[in-house]
């Protein structure tokens, strides 16, 4: 079981994001402890991705973000990276014209003493990490546009885990994957969890959330329906939270 007695790794308090007049995220509070996987569930447009993009620096919201109990300002993706927050985006966010190595190190290139990028050293590192994640991966010199969905996904995952992430955000990491690769991601999540990394997992699939997560926060229409411990609920409870916006049990939360 996850130890939730200490300070949470991440607290997002009272976060709101508005696009024009539309409140995409409406006063939502979630938290995440070390070594924990928190699932974020909800319909399309429920605000899961928007909420999480506030944490990864892609969007600006109101409210407070605390890392290790200490308030932080995250105004762009660079700030998020500086706080060891790594994100695997649903769109993967890969530069299609560059090869796997360049994508892995994008924004954080290794350089030689002359300040030039050290391609050979980066490729060696890339081969190392890909060897762990996806031993079949061989296309180190092709642009990532030439890779399969699963291969592209492993590049995106490698990028998130290579740089000693403490907080990992996975936005539908298995959406493009076959069963074999999905299993690989599940194993990876277990491994990262064991290392004490906190993971926010956005997923549509209630079953995979039941399998992988310790807790689940459900959103509907930009608002938080509630957060539940996975061992305490059934698939149907989660589904009714998603569809009806009702907390399971006697006391439904607003």
């Amino acid at each position: 079981m996850v130890d939730r007695s200490g300070t949470p790794l991440v607290e997002m308090r009272d976060i709101s994001v508005a696009f024009g007049g539309v409140k995409a995220v409406d006063h939502v509070t979630v938290d995440l402890y070390p070594g924990e996987v928190v699932g974020l569930l909800g319909h399309n447009g429920a605000g899961k991705s928007t909420l999480i993009k506030v944490l990864s620096g892609a969007y600006q919201g109101t409210g407070e973000i605390r890392i290790d109990g200490r308030p932080v300002q995250i105004t762009n993706p660079r700030d998020a990276r500086a706080n060891n927050i790594e994100t695997i985006y649903q769109t993967l966010a890969l530069a299609d014209n560059l090869d796997a190595t360049s994508n892995l190190f994008l924004g954080r290139e290794l350089v030689t003493p002359f300040g030039l990028v050290d391609d050979a050293a980066m490729e060696a590192e890339c081969r190392k990490i890909m060897g762990q994640l996806n031993p079949n991966f061989q296309k180190f010199h092709d642009p990532v546009s030439a890779l399969s969905g699963g291969q592209r996904q492993s590049v995106a995952i490698a990028r998130a885990v290579y740089f000693n992430a403490r907080i990992l955000i996975m936005d539908e990491p298995t959406a493009a994957l076959g069963p074999h690769e999905t299993q690989m991601v599940a194993e990876l999540i277990q491994k990262l969890k064991a290392q004490g990394i906190g993971i926010f997992l956005i997923d549509h699939d209630v079953h995979s959330v039941m399998d992988l997560c310790d807790r689940a926060s459900v959103m509907k229409n930009g608002q938080l329906v509630g957060t539940v411990n996975i061992p305490d609920v059934t698939d149907d409870d989660l589904l009714s939270m998603i569809i009806l916006g009702k907390m399971p049990g006697a006391a439904p939360a607003a």
Partner: peptide
């Protein structure tokens, strides 16, 4: 490298910091 990354996928470049 950033010039080419931005041309290949401006959003990815921005999200990569």
């Amino acid at each position: 490298r950033y010039i080419f990354a931005t041309g290949g996928n401006p959003d990815a470049a921005e999200l990569s910091g």
